[in-house]
Structure formats: structure tokens, C-alpha cells
Amino acid sequence: MTTDDPIHTLSEAVNQAMDIAMAEDPDVFALGEDIEDPIGGVMKGTKGLSTKYGRERVRNTPISEQAIVGAAIGASLVGMRPIAEVMLMDFFAVAMDQVANHAAKLRYMSGGRTNVPITIRTSVGGGRQFGAQHSQSLEAWMMHIPGLKVAVPSTPRDAKGLLYSCIFDDDPCIFMETMSLLFTRGPVPPGRFEIPLGVADVKRAGDDVSVVTWGWQVPEALAAAETLADEGISVEVVDLRTLVPLDRDAILRSVAKTTRAVVVHAATQFAGPGAEIASLVGHELFGRLSAPVERMGAAYSPVPYAAELESLHYPERKRIAATIRAMA
């Protein structure tokens, strides 16, 4: 990463990826609730794009998630590359028939004669006292449907590169924008910039314990690693960046080195993505681990409203540090 890249927020990086994709390819268009200017998306992801590309290509919709996703699927079947926005990941519940029974399966059901190159952008809440219906990290739900790709960037740079790849990927991609990271800043390469799907990134190198994580929990893990460095514990933080495809090699490479792994995610721990990763590590590195693989995910409860409960619901840096300390 060159340090002289201009600094942008994650939301601006998302905007750049769409801007470049729309400039390059007239088949790219966007649809969703309140995405036109002056609002430009409630999280500002599409700010300026309807002004630049017109309201034909950046289209406001009624509050109709099924129709948003379904219309994106339809246009994609004949080669367009729609970017649908579902305002919050919780509202996938409303669109799930189109997502799970159609987008994910049409390529297979048609024996490869059709495909669905859509991208669904969605904000993921959590930690903001938005309550049980506006705070869910539902990546495990997406991962469980064969046929969907899932990207969860943790930095502005990754957001730009991954979104660009999602838009031009030939399969349906779910692009999760973590709300609490949307306005964090970081260097973003200017112009066309791509990060292939399925390639993890080591955000911090270390020798003693590997933290395998993504999205919201990446900065939490990095903060825990920083604290532990002062105590002489060296932590490696592996940011998966995409969950499907899953970068098995990166996970195994890191854990083979450290021999200890913690998987951390904001999704519910029970039957969460961590189970898949722990099973992978346990199976492939059987006999070489110095400790059982630890998993840290959200508690088995709807997301509580009261701040005092919500902070107990999700993993956070102090408890991540405590878990690592106990196994190192």
C-alpha cells in the first residue's frame, strides 16, 4: 500500500468504485431507496451519481425490496450489471426469496445458460443502539446459500477494490458496508482499482496467535493486538475480506505459523461463520495446534437496545484481548 494515496472515507471509496464502473460500462446502473441526489443514499454511497449519470441510471425506488432485487436480477439476466441497494442488511429478510431462490440459483437451474451478475450493496448496523431489527450481521445467512458471493470490506481501500470486482463479477455478490466503518478514513488508490474476490489480507503480522476476522471486527482485533504487543504477545490479524469465496490458504498459512487461532465476527456465534473456519483449521492442522480454536461471535439473542446490553452482545477489543491472552 502506498502511503501517498489520497485519504477517503469508506463511503467515498464505495462511491468511487461505482462512479468508475458506471463511466466504463453503460450496462452498469444502480437502483434503491433514496439513492438519488440530493440524498445520494442514506449512507451517502451514491452521492452525486444521479447528478452525474442521470436518473435513468441511478434510480430511486419505492420501498420495495423484493422488486429492487428482482428487477436487478431481470436486467442482469440479459447482461446488464445492476447495483441494487438494500438500505440495511436486516431488510434482506423482505427480499430473501429473490436473493436465495432466484439470484443464487438461476445459473445452476438453467444449466449455466443464464447468470445473475448483480451486486447488492447493504449497510450493516450494530453498536449504535438501533435495536433488534436494524443491527444484524447476516453474513452466515448469505454464506449458507450456495451461489452467493459475500464481500465485507474493513478499509476504504478494500471497499473500493472489492466493490469494483463485485460489479464486474459474473455471479451475484452481496457487498456488506459496515455502518460503524463507513466514515472511517484511509488511503484509496485513485482511478480504476480492483481487488480479486477470495483473497484475504494480513492486516497485522504476528507470531503467537492468529485472529481471523472481517468487517467491523477488524479494527477491534487490531486494537486488541496493539494492547497485547505491549504485553509481549504477538498477534496476526487476518482480514478475510470475502467470505465466499473463502481464502482457505491464507487462513491455514497463518495458523500453521502461529498454531493458535481465534475467529471473531459480529454475526451470531452459534452456527456462525466461525464454525466453518474452526472446523477447517481443526481438520487441516490437526495435531499442530497449541490450543483449541476459539470462536467469538455475537451472543445468541436478538440485538438488545440498551447500550449496556448491546456492548455485551458483540465481541469487542477488551474481550478479544482477554481471549487471546488466555490462549497465548
Binding site: 429478510a93 435495536g131 436494524h134 437496545y305 446490553l309
Partner: peptide, 22 residues
């Protein structure tokens, strides 16, 4: 305190559901 402003319910007064999903 577990529901919050978007999820008020009070069956005693007949207020059965408050939803945050349109």
C-alpha cells in the same frame, strides 16, 4: 429496555407490536 423506541409493546393496553420493518 431491550426493545427500544422502535419496538414498543404493552399487551396490557393492547399495543401488541411495534415494528421497524416497513
Amino acid at each position: 429496555g431491550k426493545g427500544g423506541p422502535m419496538h414498543l409493546s404493552d399487551p396490557q393496553s393492547g399495543l401488541m407490536v411495534t415494528t421497524g420493518v416497513v
